[in-house]
Design a binder for these strands. Structure first.
Length: 401
DNA sequence: CGAGATTCATGTGAAGTATACCTTTAGGCTTAA
DNA sequence: AAGCCTAAAGGTATACTTCACATGAATCTCGTA
């Protein structure tokens, strides 16, 4: 009889394996953050002058993806905001992710975005950048307060818009009477800061905080904690968490990835109508994640980028083992434009587009010299073959349909 | 045989152009006194 | 005369083009051992 009860119970539970899926999502900020105490106290210490309404030092934070940078900063920010609210401290923390296309990838757009944070309407183009700065200044100057500006993925911004803009930002303070602004730059490119103008570098990294990767043991404990909150009891089969941790540690201790693996594995198991998550689901999850990520990127590209990518795909089929080079891609691209009626761009531009696709991580393009046979980009697809067809299909739909 | 010169196919920087959007300004029309 | 609307003028950011020059190793050239 007892077993029968069990069966029913399980059946009822079957509805969902999750107790709370939110806990596993990247935006979720847990009550406690493990293994980052040192960094968090460091950041908190640096920012604490805020509470006496003094300007804290600028901070430069770096560490690989998924090492808890963004999370820790947001955590500290949240704590400070509530504290500031209680004690009536005029504090404003702005978080901006510079990687978002069309949001903050040029100087104009970044400053416009900042001004919008203060409720100002800024047109997408047309105003002098200088003017946007003025609007922003005015908005800040309205009342006395401390502003902390968190620039996530700041390396992207600098790559696309140059480092002058950061210099401008760090200089803002000298033009402000009422308020003070502190910049917190987050980057996962360690080399990036070396390429900065020395002046910019020194003012941006008055303080530095380094986030080392998690090791497998730490990843496991993080996963365990979250899993308890996220899943119902007994859902996780033995060894699931170690495997997730191992997968993520294999790269560079990427916790975000580990959590995502766990979540997607759960979703997959659920969809299959299973009652527990097995090791096999994790393998499936890994494929799914990679596929979704790439498809998402591909879908959101502008037409010209899609056309270029499609040309690369076509070239890959034709020239089997030989690697693909810019000229070939451009030829196919021209033909493609003819067929689809898309206005074709110059090779100069397509060359840049290829470089950008490389930055997005969809392809691998390295500039090489073939001696007598000139110089070109050696283009390789990084797409796993399993999703190549799917990507192709999407591109075809977008380009021809 | 080896040091330089040559060469190819394209990378890359700077400057120019087209387009879309903004503000300002001058004129024209309406309205109220 | 004052007020309001419109259209033209003058300005900017962005995506792209045009032009011109830079690259860098395989290959060629030619002098030398």
């Amino acid at each position: 009889m007892k077993e029968l009860n069990n069966i029913f119970e399980k059946f009822l539970k079957k509805e969902s394996l999750f107790k709370s899926k939110k806990v596993l999502q990247a935006v979720h900020i847990p009550r406690e953050i493990n293994h980052r105490d040192e960094q968090i106290t460091q950041i908190a210490n640096i920012l604490s002058p805020t509470l006496r309404i003094e300007k804290p030092s600028n901070i430069f934070i770096y560490g690989k993806t998924g090492t808890g940078k963004t999370l820790s900063v947001r955590y500290v920010a949240e704590q400070m905001t509530t504290l500031a609210d209680n004690k009536k401290i005029p504090l404003k923390i702005i978080y901006i992710n510079c990687k978002l296309k069309k949001v903050a990838d040029t100087e104009y757009r970044l400053v416009a975005q900042l001004a919008r944070e203060f409720g100002k309407e800024i047109p997408p183009t047309g105003l002098p950048t200088e003017e946007v700065y003025n609007i922003f200044f005015k908005a800040i100057g309205e009342e006395k307060r401390i502003i902390i500006l968190v620039l996530d993925e700041i390396d992207w911004l600098v790559k696309k818009a140059g480092d002058e803009l950061i210099y401008n930002l760090t200089r803002i303070n000298s033009e402000l009477k009422n308020s003070q602004i502190t910049i917190v730059g987050i980057s996962n490119d360690l080399i990036f800061s070396n390429n900065l103008d020395p002046r910019v570098k020194s003012s941006l990294s008055e303080e530095e905080v380094i986030f080392p990767p998690y090791n497998a043991v730490q990843l496991q404990s993080i996963l365990r904690k979250r899993a308890v909150e996220a899943f119902k009891e007994g859902v996780l089969k033995e060894g699931v968490i170690p495997k997730c941790a191992a997968y993520a540690a294999r790269e560079h201790g990427d916790a975000r990835r580990a959590l995502e693996l766990l979540r997607v594995a759960g979703e997959i198991a659920e969809r299959k109508g299973k009652e527990e998550i097995t090791l096999h689901d994790i393998d499936d999850a890994e494929d799914t994640i990679e596929r979704d990520r790439i498809i998402e990127i591909v879908k959101n590209q502008p037409k010209q980028f899609q056309a270029t990518l499609y040309s690369i795909l076509l070239n890959k089929d034709n020239s089997k083992n030989k690697f693909i080079q810019t000229g070939d891609v451009y030829d196919t691209y021209r033909q493609l434009c003819n067929k689809t009626g898309l206005r074709s761009l110059t090779q100069r531009r397509v060359s840049d587009i290829i470089a950008e696709l490389d930055m997005l991580g969809i392809i691998n393009a390295k500039v090489i010299s073939k001696g007598r046979f000139g110089r070109t980009r050696e283009i390789n697809l990084i797409l796993p073959t399993s999703i190549e067809l799917k990507v192709k299909k999407i591109l075809e739909d977008d380009l021809f349909g």
